[in-house]
Amino acid sequence: MAGLEELKRRLQPIFFDADGNVVPPPAADGTSDDSSSDDCEVLDGGTVNLLSRSSDEYNISKLGFHKRTTRPDGDYATDKAYRCSCHDMHIFDSVGNGASSVVHRAIYVPVHRVLALKKINIFDKEKRQQILNEIRTLSAASCYPGLVEFQGVFYTPDSGEIYFALEYMDGGSLADIIRVKKFITEPVLSHMLQKVLLALRYLHEVRRLVHRDIKPANLLLNLKGDTKITDFGVSSGLHDSVTMCATFLGSVTYMSPERIRNENYSYAADIWSLGLTALECATGRYPYDVNGGEADLMLQILEDPSPTPPQHMHSEEFCSFIDACLQKDADARPTCDQLLSHSFIKKYEGPGVDLAEYNKSVHDPAERLSQIAHVSS
């Protein structure tokens, strides 16, 4: 426990439970509250009303959701509606479980399209901010190529569950590829990272968002060759180029040093996470020792030299890319735009890599046929 005590001494006011895991800070009344001033109300007729700090109001029912944005003078500025009904869904098996949600495969019957339904309980107070973050981000960028496509959201009163209807990425995640292939070759990884960087640049420069949870499990693939970012539950908006975040959310495993020190942080925090993700994908292993628990891992990230790829196994360009992403000083890390011009990305540009064929090669053809038959039946 010595490592935990040292971390507590150096990193206050981060809060830990008895096992050394990071937990949300207590609110003024002594309770744990992650939702700040966002409010939730279940209205008559089975509708959930979510009111965000930005004065956006979301009414979610079993028929879909309606967004209303209020001007400072009290007038309604915009209305936007998504009709995505629970009655239109044929829900199948679970295809994944996260820390705060379960994902099911489903068919959207009106167009016979396979979707992923992400299920979150609305009555779990700590998850309400996650729900709002997901709705805000996905509804505002529902068709951007590098983000998982958003079809809508609906509420089931009987269970108290909010369902996000998302594009079904039938190629799995980068984490799945690592499990099957053990590692990803540099040419393939370069093409994948180019797609991720384009999407991350959009989040940073257009949406002014820090994703805060870039990791292999949140980078999804489809059999058409796309690589897309998902899971915006802990993302945070920055209103201008000098605004910084100051909250401690996301996966500690891929967290940047400035976030672990509980300092203000910005877009560069995502670049660190992307660098760790790329290094893990290329080598097949996470570069830090996780056996000592979260406190020990955080001390490694702070105190140890940044990890590097084995130079005898990887190109000079890839080693340079990782070195740029994993600078301890956030100001020294490149932007997405700069990384898109990096020699590692430029080296493999062109028609030499077929990501669609590669993604298909990860999956057992017999298993794929079985899945298609199951969904189609």
Rank of each mutant, 00 (worst) to 15 (best):
H342R: 00
N218W: 02
A18D: 15
I229L: 11
L193D: 02
Y358F: 14
S36F: 14
G160F: 04
K67Y: 04
S361G: 15
L174P: 04
K118L: 07
P145I: 01
D158S: 14
V353C: 11
G98E: 11
A373G: 00
D170F: 03
A366K: 06
R179E: 10
G3D: 08
Y76G: 03
T78G: 04
Q129F: 09
S266G: 14
V148D: 08
S139L: 01
N218S: 10
V23D: 12
L166P: 10
I60L: 01
C319R: 05
G250R: 08
K182D: 14
L299A: 13
A295H: 09
A77V: 07
A77W: 13
N264R: 08
S320W: 05
A27L: 08
P310E: 02
A175S: 12
N21W: 09
T227D: 04
G237W: 04
N262P: 03
D88N: 07
E317D: 12
K127P: 06
L174I: 08
S85P: 07
H374V: 06
E126D: 15
L276I: 14
T156Q: 15
K80H: 14
K62G: 14
D364N: 14
D75N: 08
F65L: 11
A175T: 01
L117S: 09
Q129T: 14
A278V: 01
Y168H: 15
R105C: 11
I122H: 06
K8Q: 10
I14W: 00
S85L: 00
C281S: 02
E6K: 12
S32W: 06
L279N: 00
T137E: 09
Y288P: 09
N262V: 09
E186P: 01
F232M: 01
S61N: 06
P13C: 07
L219Y: 02
H66D: 13
R201A: 13
A356G: 07
K67V: 01
L339T: 00
A246F: 02
Y144P: 04
G284L: 09
L189S: 04
I107E: 11
L193M: 15
L198K: 09
R179S: 13
L297E: 07
I107Y: 03
Y288H: 10
D33H: 05
D158P: 11
Q371I: 12
N21G: 04
I135F: 07
V102L: 09
K347C: 03
S159G: 10
L209W: 03
G171R: 12
Q194G: 13
V153L: 11
I120A: 02
V42Q: 05
E57N: 15
F154G: 05
I322K: 12
